[in-house]
Design a protein around this nucleic acid. Structure first.
Lengths: 210, 210
DNA sequence: TAGATTGTTAATCGATTAACAATC
DNA sequence: TAGATTGTTAATCGATTAACAATC
């Protein structure tokens, strides 16, 4: 279909919000209600819903269950997504646990590290393999998305390897700039860079948001 | 001065990259070299440098030390930024350690939690206070930026409190949508939402990047 | 001078917002 | 019908890119 990235972002937010309201709230919702809850404009909401082909009722607004069903169909994958974490340090293992606790379609199926003590660590309920065997396990376990929390030094190397093994989605927590082909979806998630950005904008207010 | 957000992002990347090259590389760098290393276009680089008022040499390019000095002046705060983490769970404590290990201007000066066992935990080398006293400590310790890794349920409440205590920068790791005044710089860093976004784009390729 | 680069304006592109017709 | 809402096109805004003059 080809939805704009910002629309995809918002659809995910609509879903998260409405899932918790699903039972309690009325079955229908107006664009301005949804907009108000997420600090958006009603037009933005209507445009997004138009783009995914959902039509509302002029009297009652949009049917919540139809909206949720449609978003699920667009965003979710039938068998969920298989995720692996590379680098089982503090951050890697925290992110791993965080995903496991969430009730999303994201399944962490493996971790990788170079440290032998971590490789034997099964405390997360999933196996941790030696990163040298990453290509093999990506194919065997049909891993879709890699979360990089390894050292910045090896990040590009790991990225190259997982890409040639078939991974097309990477979430990069390292501060390394990764050079990847266009077809790969790369999300940079560098905490320090983001904090420095916040630093600039609190020093020089009146500017853009996240 | 008022730099565009994207320019600020890139300036931070230029700095990170050049800091490691500072000694080894020649003192001057061409826009196309910098661009190539970060998958940007030379024009983008030149435009950014123009915006910060750095002029280059037609023969040699830009002087690396001048560039770094200028970026430092724009991005850094004279005394660094004081950061506090709210919620010392796995994620909070991992993020805390991650920042401590980085060599940035960001100083984590305190943590906050509701759990009494964590409040006594000094294993991070910084005090952890009861979140009920957060306003007091924000003012006392001159905290500039709050990192929210607490439960989504209390996130808005905590945000309101830290904002009225004077904080103007928030990095939100929770999945809660936060409603904050315009003058507050809010960076949403919700891992699950981002993974779901990656999921959509690897299912439907040919689209936007991070 | 010829060639490579910087510096900057104009055109383009994507996303948001304004405006408003259509509908219940 | 009057009023509120949806649906959609046109205008605007911010950021990138194309184009090119100026310079060493």
């Amino acid at each position: 279909m080809g939805l704009p990235p910002r629309t995809v972002e918002r659809l995910i937010k609509y879903r998260r919000l409405l899932e918790s309201y699903k039972e309690a709230e009325s079955m229908f919702i107006f664009s301005h209600q949804l907009a108000h809850m997420l600090n958006l404009t009603p037009v933005q909401v209507r445009r997004d819903l138009m783009l995914i082909g959902l039509s509302g009722n002029h009297r009652k607004g949009y049917k919540v269950t139809s909206l949720l069903k449609l978003i699920d169909k667009l965003i979710d994958h039938e068998d969920g997504f298989n995720v692996a974490v590379v680098g089982l340090g503090n951050l890697g293992s925290a992110v791993l646990r965080f995903i496991q606790r969430s009730n999303s379609q994201m399944k962490v199926v493996a971790a990788f590290d170079i440290d032998q003590t971590k490789i034997n660590d099964a405390s997360h309920g999933i196996p941790c393999y030696n990163v040298s065997k990453i290509s093999y396990f990506i194919q065997k376990m049909k891993i879709d998305i890699i979360i990089l929390t390894s050292s910045s030094v090896t990040a590009q190397e790991v990225a190259n390897e997982v890409i040639s093994a078939g991974v097309t989605g990477i979430m990069n927590f390292t501060s390394a700039h990764l050079d990847v082909p266009d077809r790969i979806y790369l999300k940079n998630y560098d905490i320090i860079t983001s904090l420095e950005e916040i630093g600039y904008f609190i020093k020089n207010p009146l500017q853009g948001k996240s």
